[in-house]
């Protein structure tokens, strides 16, 4: 049976897992959980064709290594350079993690509070939009002047880039008030705090997770960009370093690491979404 239709038909006697595993299969999460073996095979086949094909083409047309390295050269560089890249990866992760944690918690709390006060929300929202739309990378040179070449300016930039993203999405979630559900909780004597924890947060959860996902990807972009702007550490810094030396296999090896990092973040939040927000299929 067609999968998308399968989600919409209530199947009363269908044997599902303990939680009824109908995944987040909406537009925001396209990493489907029910992939047939055939589809998996095709995806792998495409990857093999792209990697193998580029290897052959680059070899056949004799493209110099400094223009485009062959996949095999990138793989070799990844293995041989990894011990040198490892400390930089850790620094990048640290900056991303701390910056995102600060930004996301402030963004979440701000969203939770201001959506309770329509007037405050109206006043604050334009400024948050300003923060969302302005590339926070532009502030990095300024932050470096103030905080030096260490991790601090980058952490601040990451927090500034991810926080508003989390905030704006969470606020959208918190604004989706279902008065009937709040009335239901109140009719059973719920306190304002209980309504917040038992009704408002679960209800906003799908949007909060989308916010966390987008925010963390924005954070990753900003971390790498900020490292490219100044300082002497982090994967972003290594990118500028290797490109200056025209060591393209190493350069592409870092890009590969960053791609894996980005995908891991996505998969993590996808998993979180399935765990906490799968009710909104």
């Amino acid at each position: 049976m067609d999968k998308t239709l399968g989600d919409k038909i209530p199947e009363f006697n269908k044997k599902t897992g303990a939680n009824g595993n109908v995944g987040l299969s909406g537009a925001s999460f396209s990493l489907g959980d029910h992939r047939t073996k055939f589809e998996t095979f095709i995806i792998i086949l495409v990857a093999v064709i792209i990697i193998g094909g580029s290897e052959l083409l680059i070899y056949a047309f004799n493209v110099p290594q400094y223009v485009l390295p062959r996949p095999s050269q990138i793989a070799t560089a990844l293995v041989t350079e990894f011990p040198n890249l490892w400390p930089h990866l850790l620094i990048t992760l640290k900056e991303l993690f701390i910056g995102f944690a600060i930004g996301a918690s402030i963004g979440f709390l701000l969203a939770a509070v201001i959506t309770q006060f329509p007037f405050v929300e109206k006043v604050v929202t334009p400024y948050i939009l300003l923060l969302v739309t302005t590339p926070m990378l532009a502030l990095v040179p300024l932050l470096i002047l103030r905080f030096g070449f260490g991790s601090e300016p980058r952490i601040i930039a990451v927090a500034l880039a991810s926080g508003p993203m989390v905030m704006i999405n969470s606020a959208t979630g918190f604004r989706r008030v279902d008065l009937a559900k709040i009335a239901l909780a109140r009719s059973f004597g719920a306190s304002t705090f209980q309504i917040f924890t038992k009704i408002r947060i679960p209800m906003a959860m799908p949007m909060i997770i989308v916010g966390l996902m987008v925010g963390s990807i924005f954070g990753l972009l900003t971390t790498i960009g900020a490292e490219m702007v100044g300082g002497a550490e982090g994967l972003g810094n290594r990118l500028t370093y290797y490109s200056a030396l025209i060591r393209m296999p190493q350069f592409f090896a870092i890009i590969l690491i960053l791609a894996i990092l980005g995908i891991s973040i996505y998969v993590f939040f996808f998993w979180l979404g399935k765990k906490w927000a799968s009710w909104e299929a």
Binding site: A180, K181, A183, L184, S187, I199, P202, M203, M205, A277, W279, E280
Partner: peptide, 11 residues
């Protein structure tokens, strides 16, 4: 109180 449309929490 029993509400319109059952009003169960979908999560």
């Amino acid at each position: 109180m029993i509400f319109q449309d059952a009003n169960l929490l979908p999560w």
